Amino acid sequence: MQFGLGLPISSPALLPEWARAAEDCGFDSLALLDRLAFDNPEPLTALAVLAGATSRIRLQTEVLLGPLRATALLAKQVATLHRMSGGRFVLGIGVGGRADDHDAAGVPLSARGRVLDRQLPELRQIWRGEPYRGAVIGPRPLTPPEILIGGFAPAALRRVALFADGFLCAAPLSWAGGLVQTVRDQWASAGRAGRPRLVCQINVAAGPAAAVARARTAVAGYYAFTGRPGWGAPLTDPAEIADTVAAYREFGADELVLYCYGDDPGQVPALARLVC
């Protein structure tokens, strides 16, 4: 099982330090979430900066809100980042569920699934160098960029077999099994070889008490819209983190991304000692 590091969003200027530390400590990927109506760095822009600060580690969005972006421009941005990073970019994409993000982008929330269903084959079309609305849009990516789809709804799960290379599962293990089995069943029914790549996520915090407290506050603020106190609270006990990692390994995850909401880069080596 590989390990990714989900980057904090509160201090963008620190992210190159996080990226270099993650690469030095042996993490396999860096991930950034996407929101529009929130105080977070735009992930494609931020990951482009981090591509220049690193040389080996993969860079992935988890998940980019595709319907908020124009398809042709998104294809160009992804292809550019893929080429300039030496093929290290992975597009994790989904629809999102926040009305404020969609209102700010002028995209009806009710249309987001239909928009993504159009976008995904069109992205592949553009990357193959085929004309899109009468124009060829470059640059061509080095190879077809890997696409991971995240979500929980049946429509989101269906998209994995139709359009993607893998599934981003942000659900807790207690109810992830049914989602993953549905994805694998649909993959087989579609006649696709092998199985979809499975990338899972957990929220964590490590280090001094002050750093852990900041992480708890940041997570609570990010998930406040759910109205569920404690939703998404990070794992902080090293033994509990180690046990959870072992459970995901047994579950069959290809990659586990540890999301850090606290901004202290000192967490990176502390987490690496637990997993890498």
Results as ranks from 00 to 15, higher is better:
residue 2 Q to T: 07
residue 5 L to C: 07
residue 5 L to A: 02
residue 6 G to A: 14
residue 6 G to S: 10
residue 7 L to W: 06
residue 12 P to Y: 09
residue 14 L to S: 15
residue 14 L to T: 09
residue 16 P to G: 06
residue 18 W to D: 04
residue 18 W to F: 15
residue 20 R to I: 01
residue 24 D to M: 06
residue 25 C to E: 10
residue 26 G to W: 07
residue 28 D to Q: 10
residue 31 A to M: 10
residue 32 L to F: 01
residue 32 L to N: 00
residue 34 D to G: 03
residue 36 L to K: 07
residue 36 L to I: 13
residue 37 A to I: 04
residue 39 D to F: 09
residue 40 N to G: 01
residue 42 E to R: 00
residue 42 E to A: 11
residue 45 T to A: 11
residue 51 A to R: 12
residue 53 A to C: 06
residue 55 S to F: 07
residue 55 S to G: 15
residue 60 Q to M: 15
residue 63 V to C: 01
residue 67 P to F: 03
residue 68 L to Q: 03
residue 73 L to V: 14
residue 80 T to R: 06
residue 80 T to G: 08
residue 85 S to T: 12
residue 86 G to C: 09
residue 86 G to E: 09
residue 87 G to M: 08
residue 94 G to V: 02
residue 98 R to I: 14
residue 100 D to I: 15
residue 101 D to S: 05
residue 104 A to V: 14
residue 106 G to F: 07
residue 108 P to R: 12
residue 108 P to H: 04
residue 109 L to E: 01
residue 111 A to T: 13
residue 115 V to H: 13
residue 117 D to S: 10
residue 117 D to P: 12
residue 118 R to F: 12
residue 119 Q to S: 06
residue 120 L to Q: 13
residue 122 E to N: 12
residue 124 R to N: 09
residue 125 Q to N: 05
residue 128 R to V: 03
residue 130 E to R: 15
residue 131 P to I: 07
residue 134 G to A: 10
residue 135 A to N: 12
residue 135 A to H: 13
residue 137 I to T: 04
residue 138 G to C: 06
residue 138 G to L: 13
residue 139 P to N: 03
residue 140 R to P: 13
residue 143 T to Q: 14
residue 144 P to V: 05
residue 145 P to N: 11
residue 146 E to T: 14
residue 150 G to N: 00
residue 150 G to D: 04
residue 155 A to N: 05
residue 158 R to Q: 10
residue 158 R to I: 00
residue 160 V to W: 02
residue 160 V to T: 11
residue 162 L to I: 12
residue 163 F to Q: 13
residue 165 D to H: 12
residue 167 F to Y: 15
residue 170 A to V: 14
residue 171 A to T: 07
residue 178 G to P: 12
residue 183 V to Y: 02
residue 184 R to L: 07
residue 187 W to Q: 02
residue 187 W to N: 02
residue 188 A to F: 05
residue 188 A to N: 11
residue 189 S to P: 02
residue 190 A to Q: 11
residue 191 G to Q: 12
residue 192 R to Q: 09
residue 198 L to Q: 00
residue 202 I to A: 09
residue 204 V to G: 00
residue 205 A to N: 03
residue 209 A to C: 01
residue 211 A to T: 15
residue 214 R to L: 14
residue 215 A to Q: 01
residue 216 R to Y: 03
residue 221 G to V: 05
residue 225 F to M: 09
residue 227 G to V: 07
residue 228 R to P: 00
residue 229 P to R: 08
residue 233 A to S: 11
residue 233 A to V: 11
residue 233 A to G: 07
residue 234 P to E: 05
residue 236 T to S: 13
residue 237 D to W: 11
residue 240 E to G: 00
residue 245 V to Q: 14
residue 251 F to E: 07
residue 252 G to C: 12
residue 253 A to V: 01
residue 253 A to C: 03
residue 253 A to M: 12
residue 254 D to P: 00
residue 256 L to S: 02
residue 257 V to H: 11
residue 258 L to R: 08
residue 261 Y to K: 04
residue 265 P to A: 04
residue 268 V to P: 06
residue 271 L to R: 08
residue 272 A to M: 07
residue 272 A to E: 08
residue 273 R to C: 02
residue 275 V to E: 06
residue 276 C to V: 15
